[in-house]
């Protein structure tokens, strides 16, 4: 156990503490700024992983219908279902665990930053004395930077978020940005059960994080918010901005009151049609909402799919399309022109 602690200290904790102190020295003795720069830097370093994650996600999206078929086929044999699903992924060169890369990396960063913030801001003499043992003596600016000034925009970054007058506001910001982040990265479910889980996660995580953030140091809440914002921007560049527009559209906001967005109504009707047919159609993964969520598709490709959908819709003739969906499809066509 002690060995794990030493490795953690050597690989995560000390580098983080020293990075923060060095950035504090570089950023004009502004600790808030150093947290922001640190966050942006770590998020940017993870861009290759994020891209890989999106690529994997996209590949898995494409495999979803086949996975669904397997799921239907081996309904009563979970072991076989699992084997066949894994075989499908293996044959297609997809590693589901690969999607966890950024998560796996962010966990130690988050926990490490939590401890690093506490160590660096050193609220008691004991913690300041301990900080001395964690700093690299060769790092420029260390001696003159300590003690760290914890104030940023009038907030004490070492205080609990709940202790700040802006606490509830910060909690809302972190929850809101988490929700948007979640919304952008959540792909369409391939089954009602997954859809339910997806909906639950979409709200559960932001609320939980918002509530927890009140019990974190303000500096950590700022890290989280900035991390989400950078994540949203990165995700937007890689996967497109459709989901951001979608998130702020009336239809999406309507889900706040329990009413499904326009596009979703269509999806549900489509899904029920498929169920009635007793078949799984590839169309279930092709809708407007997913264009921007499921992977780095170009706007043009997205429009093509819209057009294709439009054609299919017209042929089916029995599908009810909302005004919102039609408006978005029109916008797509106009952009293409």
């Amino acid at each position: 156990m002690e060995l794990i602690g030493d490795i953690w200290d050597l690989v995560i904790n000390r580098p983080m503490i020293n990075s923060l102190v060095f950035l504090y020295w570089v950023c004009f003795s502004n600790f808030g700024l150093s947290i922001i720069v640190f966050t942006v830097a770590t998020r940017l370093l993870m861009v290759p992983l994020t891209m890989r994650q999106v690529k994997m996600t996209r590949a898995m999206s494409e495999l979803a219908p086949k996975a669904q078929e397997i799921s239907e086929k081996y309904k009563g044999d979970s072991q076989r279902r699992s084997q066949e699903t894994m075989k499908l992924y293996r044959e297609s060169g997809v590693n589901p665990v690969g999607c966890l890369g950024p998560l796996v990396l962010q966990m130690p960063i988050f926990i490490g930053l939590f401890w690093a913030l506490r160590s660096t801001l050193a609220s008691t003499p004991e913690s300041l004395a301990d900080l001395a043992t964690k700093l690299y003596p060769w790092l420029p600016g260390v001696g003159e930077s300590i003690p760290i000034d914890p104030y940023f925009l009038g907030l004490n970054l070492g205080d609990l978020t709940s202790a700040s007058g802006f606490g509830p506001f910060l909690a809302l910001v972190v929850a809101g940005s988490t929700w948007l982040m979640q919304k952008m990265s959540t792909s369409k479910a391939t089954s009602p059960q997954q859809e339910q889980t997806s909906k639950m996660l979409l709200w559960f995580m932001p609320i939980m994080i918002g509530v927890f953030s009140l019990q974190f140091e303000t500096g950590l809440t700022i890290y989280w918010t900035v991390s989400n914002i950078v994540g949203i921007v990165v995700q937007g560049f890689i996967g497109g901005w459709g989901q951001v527009r979608e998130a702020f559209s009336f239809g999406s906001l309507a889900t706040l009151w329990g009413k499904p967005p326009a596009g979703q109504e269509k999806d549900e009707s489509q899904s029920s049609t498929n169920k009635n047919d007793g078949r799984v159609s590839d169309d279930t993964t092709d809708d407007e909402g997913e264009d921007s969520e499921s992977g780095p598709r170009s706007e043009e490709a997205a429009s093509d799919e819209h057009r294709r959908n439009d054609g299919q819709d017209a042929r089916r003739g029995d599908r009810v399309r909302s005004k919102g969906a039609r408006r978005r499809a029109r916008r797509s066509r106009n952009r293409r022109r």
Binding site: T57, C99, L103, S191, T197, M205
Partner: peptide, 27 residues
């Protein structure tokens, strides 16, 4: 962190990954 939770879960269709991710986040 949240990004991956949602994406991984929904596309892989593997509840164990979902559980792992959510459990890690909560932990």
């Amino acid at each position: 962190m949240n990004t991956t939770i949602g994406t991984t879960t929904l596309n892989s269709g593997r509840p164990s990954l979902l559980k792992l991710a959510v459990a890690s986040a909560i932990l």
